[in-house]
Computed example of a mutant assay.
Amino acid sequence: MAPLRQLLASRAVLAGLVALGCLGLFISTLDNTSRNDLKRVWNNNNYSNNQQNLESPIQWSDAANPARDLGKPLAAYPQRKPLTTQHKIEKAKGYYDRVVRMRRLLLQQYNYGKSFVCPHEIQRVGPLNDGGKWLCGMSLYEEHPRAKCVMYSFGVNYETRFEGEMLDRTDCEIWGYDASVTSMGPEATSSRSHFYPYFIGREDKVDQNGKTWKTLKTLMKENGHDWIDILKVDIEGSEYDTFDAIMDDFGDVLPFSQLQMELHVHESHVSFPTFLKWWERLESKGVYPWWTEINLNPVFSGQRAWASEYCFLNTKGGSKNILIQNFV
């Protein structure tokens, strides 16, 4: 059993380190004043209730033990086979929580990140460069376990090879939104593809430039949807304000199974204190990152990298969320 414990322990550590990219990337863009702000923000946050956990050492040798908040034991899932999707998610939450405690201990010194674990197979969809996405459980969309697969894409900018491959490989319907262009790209021309020249935002309005903005809640109501299987967001730095509005509008259960979002971490987009508060609010909704990939386009033009593609899994949603169901 010792080698098994060591293997699981190593996987738990790697799951915590794989998302270092975005938070580490963000810190690399900060000046000394902003870095010093981190300690002040940390001390002002109310973590007193968790102080005992934060100060206790992390014992990775027991990572294979289902006790000690590492997820429910298999006995808690009567008449289920070992390693069901639900059990994998429970275990992943336990590992994730451990790394959160480690992050809180080390954040001031190392700006530590973390990651969740997708309980299904992972596939790259779309191009290898900017525009492609990593999806959790792609086979579930191909095999039609849900009567109607719904995908929303915010920020298309004519780059629709990801959307095109999704249309080719699945029966999903796609709703694309971007007020900066007049149509989807050529790959996404289909009877199952719907485009509207709207920006997604905090409120429904028409701005001074005549551009239409709508909230996610309004768009879902107009389309007759109560759930989104895949939500893709690439809105050039507006994601923080927009997602604060989404979290305000939908409460404890956000209406999507997985989220593909490019996070822009340049200081002109968001300060680190704001980013950390926003990140932990998203975690509190049961939405966890399981993959990250730095966007290297700025590097190719001689700039410092300041954007990262993130993949998130929603662990809530009940029967609407196919990613937390068990298919055997």
Rank of each mutant, 00 (worst) to 15 (best):
V150H: 10
D244G: 00
E121D: 13
D178T: 10
E187S: 11
I230T: 10
S56R: 15
N223D: 12
K217W: 04
Q59M: 13
K91M: 07
V156H: 03
Q260P: 00
S56L: 14
W134K: 06
K320A: 13
L128N: 11
K277Y: 06
L107H: 14
V13L: 08
I58V: 15
P119H: 06
W42L: 15
F199I: 08
S257I: 04
Y77K: 11
R161I: 02
D249A: 13
W134Y: 13
P298T: 10
G113C: 06
S153N: 09
A92E: 03
A19C: 12
M247E: 11
I322A: 11
E143Y: 08
R161M: 09
Q325K: 14
F162E: 04
A15S: 14
W290E: 03
V100A: 08
T315W: 00
D248E: 13
Q303E: 14
F162A: 08
G71E: 01
N295G: 07
S257E: 02
D31P: 08
N157C: 09
R161T: 09
Y96P: 02
I174N: 00
Q123L: 13
Q109A: 14
V117R: 03
F300M: 14
W213K: 00
S48W: 00
N53P: 00
C172A: 13
K114H: 13
L20K: 06
S301V: 15
D37Q: 10
D248A: 12
E283Q: 10
F300N: 13
R192A: 12
A305W: 05
I58P: 00
D97C: 13
L254A: 00
A67N: 15
S139M: 07
D241G: 04
M138N: 02
S56E: 15
S28M: 14
L23R: 05
M261S: 05
L216F: 01
V41G: 08
N65G: 05
L14A: 08
P197F: 03
K320E: 12
N45Y: 10
P78M: 13
N65Y: 05
G286K: 11
K205Q: 13
S183H: 04
K285L: 02
S191V: 10
W134C: 01
D226A: 12
D178K: 03
G302C: 11
Y310D: 04
T215I: 11
K93E: 04
E187P: 00
V299E: 11
Y240A: 04
N44G: 15
N43E: 15
N36C: 02
Y95C: 10
H269K: 13
N129K: 14
D244R: 06
F116Q: 09
G16D: 02
M102S: 12
T274R: 12
E165T: 04
F116G: 06
